[in-house]
Write a protein that binds this DNA or RNA. Structure first.
Lengths: 244, 244
DNA sequence: TGCGGCTCCTTGGTCAGACCAAACTTTCCG
DNA sequence: CGGAAAGTTTGGTCTGACCAAGGAGCCGCA
């Protein structure tokens, strides 16, 4: 509450039509600057309307806008929580729309195809430039995968985890985020599919083949193993949902 | 106004805290079903509050929510326009956040690196499975690129277009969208960079090398040419902005 | 007849004040 | 000392009102 007494002096965009826009950008700045700490609750709406000398209507509008952009997490009856957005927030905001597109099967195919595309690059990259630690992580994930063969639920988790290791190898924060997004989008579809230890065994074998190829620094083999693996998976998806 | 008289009978989620949620999902359905036609204006807020027998507060909240999710395009003082969302809408909604992340240079690097990653896959794919038409399109784009060498602005456009052709080859609607997104995100940075016919010449040569490799069905050569090309570009970016 | 300009109605944006129910805080009793 | 009860805060919703800008219709001039 230091300079809060003259909030209007710093108006960045007073000319525009929406009064809430100015407030949105101000609060946004406060969040980015840390003045409003990450994970702390937003001041009450009445407080804010005093700080910005605006009506509650405008304040609520601003809060809603910030929430929709991922700067706030607003549970129905609770105080909004300040969230400094990261890559995950970004992908999260697409989530709802992706969900919609997934309903028309063409979307599922496109998305899955895109995933194959990315992972092809990932395994090539892994084969050419994985570090000792990366390989070790892969080995661990593979071992966990093998142990989980009898239990389909656990197997699914370790399956996702194995692929997740691949996404972490390039050291680019975008990829793990992308993986999480993929997983969350496609998981509902996966869960509907019938699973069995036999099928798990096949998938594990594919993972092992990928791992081996990476170990041998053979990008082409790794890519092929990956493609085979995901093609098989896709066929299962097609069978299950009766797509094209 | 057929079934509008009993809007509460179809409530999908009446138990939740937010009253606007129900209205949001109903309007959303009407948009998806085509009952509210694409590009047509939304009924006035007063109309809607009658249809849903809700206060204007709630209606406005619902409209704002739909607008933030891309189902409506709401210019400040005008009637909201109905928009059936597509892939572009999805990526558009990330735009604002990406913009923010681009400000901390690490984000630029990550994003650029991810782009390199994707395009590596794209050129490999092009080299292995480009059709005659794809090759022709590439050739055209390359020719346009060459013609534009003297004029940096035009060159930039044809540069983007050339890469755009690569994104279209896999026939996956996600990729062109991604390309558009990349272009719009990185364009502001590119525009700040100094350009010259000499530099354009170098870039054109790179494009030509990529094209040649694709023509010769040589994925490795194509990938290498692409990586060289983008590495050079990245060095220019680094020089311009003084990144790590 | 055609068209720019004026008027009036519509409609989105904002405000003030009020009420309710759920969440939070404090108090008090076992 | 812990948990239940009472009181206070606070988000969600409603009502009614006002303002200014957009849009439709009217009018007069060319």
């Amino acid at each position: 509450m230091n300079q809060a007494s003259r909030p209007q002096s710093v108006d960045t965009a007073p000319a525009t039509g929406r009064a809430s826009d100015a407030i949105v950008s101000q609060i946004q700045q406060r969040i980015l600057s840390g003045e409003l700490a990450h994970n702390s609750p937003l001041p009450s709406e009445r407080d804010l309307m005093e700080q910005f000398s605006a009506s509650r209507t405008v304040i609520r509008e601003a809060v809603a806008a910030l929430a929709s952009r991922g700067f706030l997490e607003a549970k129905p009856r609770y105080r909004p929580i300040v969230r400094k957005p990261g890559y995950d927030t970004a992908l999260n905001s697409v989530g709802s729309i992706v969900e919609l597109m997934l309903r028309q099967e063409d979307g599922v195919r496109s998305l899955f195809q895109a995933r194959v595309f990315v992972e092809r690059g990932l395994v090539r990259d892994a084969a050419t430039s994985a570090t000792r630690e990366d390989i070790a992580a892969l080995k661990d994930a593979l071992a966990a995968n093998e142990r989980a063969i009898p239990e389909s639920d656990a197997f699914f988790a370790t399956d996702v985890a194995f692929h997740g290791v691949l996404y972490r190898i390039p050291q680019n924060p975008l990829f793990p985020t992308l993986h999480a997004a993929y997983a969350s989008w496609l998981a509902p579809h996966w869960c509907q599919m019938l699973r069995s230890p036999e099928r798990n065994q096949v998938n594990f074998a594919s993972h092992q083949a990928i791992y081996t190829a990476i170990l041998e620094r053979d990008p082409d083999a790794a890519e092929e193993a990956l493609v085979t693996h995901l093609d098989t998976a896709w066929n299962h998806v097609r069978e299950t949902f009766g797509l094209d």
